[in-house]
């Protein structure tokens, strides 16, 4: 792997290799000394054009636990807010000697552009680009799903599982990356959303799409992933009449959660709108793995950095 831009770039074998590395990373994190020397002397830049404290600190923790130096470069209060272009920022980072750049941008394709425009030679990790992809989020979701539903086998995929993804699919890079990755790993995916929040053209995706949450939940899924309703991105407005109506039709209420199969788990990429797309009691219930997803995020991001930066990742962990 040269970059980590899009799930669409991965084959099943590569995806499972990253998950397996993440399991090794998880194991090291239960030791008394959690810091590994793997990336000593390398510098990872977190280049965040969009505010995302959660994702940034997750990448920061991952890099630091591998002993990399971390430079956080956020758009606010920097030259970027004074109009500096992605190109000039990239040239600057190249000149400063960054070894890898983790980029988060509100622009779809920003990570792809950074990787392929010729401005910078280093590996690029996509930490979310517009409504396009958020591949490390999908990896951490798959990692969490596998731990609960296919435990014990580092070579396993998610074959035979049924995952229901609910909510604002239109604006969700998490949904796009997850549809690609979960199906790549053999799971069946059902997307549930009000029609205006299903992208025109999504019928071509390798998943089923329904507008009826109760119908989807009645099929007895193995996992339900709730998406955050991204009201800040709703250009033009009018995607649904009121929060109350959305919540009644598409919210994961306690009643809906109670009707799930016993083994089914509930995921949410965060940050949650409690009481809107997910009831607080459901988020805090035993079937919720939402806090665990945060921990998984660090393991998966350690694994991704390892695959991109370790001098010879075939030798395994040092």
């Amino acid at each position: 792997m040269r970059h980590f831009i899009s799930i669409a770039d991965l084959d099943r074998e590569e995806a499972i290799a990253v998950l397996a590395t993440a399991e090794h990373m998880a194991e090291t994190q239960s030791r008394s000394i959690r810091k590994l020397p793997t990336l000593v002397g390398t510098t990872v830049v977190n280049l965040f054009f969009e505010d995302s404290t959660r994702t940034r600190i997750s990448f920061e923790a991952a890099a630091k636990r591998l002993s990399a130096d971390v430079i956080n470069f956020s758009a606010k209060g920097s030259s970027v807010s004074k109009g500096e272009s992605l190109k000039d920022t990239a040239l600057t980072l190249q000149a400063m000697g960054a070894d890898a750049v983790v980029v988060r941008s509100g622009s779809s394709g920003a990570a792809h552009l950074l990787a392929h425009a010729g401005w910078i030679d280093q590996p690029i990790v996509n930490a979310g680009d517009g409504a396009h992809e958020h591949p490390t989020q999908a990896m951490l979701d798959a990692f969490t799903l596998r731990r609960h539903l296919r435990p014990g086998d580092l070579t396993a995929g998610l074959d035979g599982l049924h995952v229901v993804i609910v909510g604002d699919v239109l604006h969700s890079r998490v949904a796009r990356s997850n549809v690609l990755l979960l199906t790549l790993l053999g799971a069946r995916v059902t997307l549930v959303a009000p029609p205006a929040l299903v992208p025109v053209g999504a019928a071509a995706w390798p998943c089923r799409i329904t507008y009826d949450l109760d119908e989807a939940l009645a099929t007895g899924p193995d996992a339900v992933m709730m998406l955050r309703v991204q009201r800040e991105r709703m250009v033009g407005g009018g995607f649904f009449p009121t929060a109350g109506e959305y919540s009644r039709r598409y919210g994961l209420t306690t009643a809906r959660a109670a009707a799930l199969p016993d083994h089914a788990i509930v995921l949410h990429p965060g940050p949650m709108n409690r009481g809107f797309e997910i009831a607080g009691d459901v988020a805090d219930s035993p079937r919720s793995v939402i806090v665990e997803q945060v921990a998984s995020g660090v393991f998966v991001r350690m694994a991704v950095l390892y695959h991109l930066l370790a001098t010879d990742s075939r030798e395994g962990l040092r």
């Binding site: 680009d129 396009h132 992208p199 025109v200 053209g201 033009g236």
Partner: peptide, 24 residues
């Protein structure tokens, strides 16, 4: 103009995949 606020590319299969706002 109202149907194309923020529009980036033709609205269809490709815009759905790329997550770019559609120009229907």
């Amino acid at each position: 103009p109202r149907l194309t606020e923020g529009a980036q590319m033709h609205e269809g299969v490709v815009s759905a995949e790329l997550g770019l706002a559609g120009w229907p």
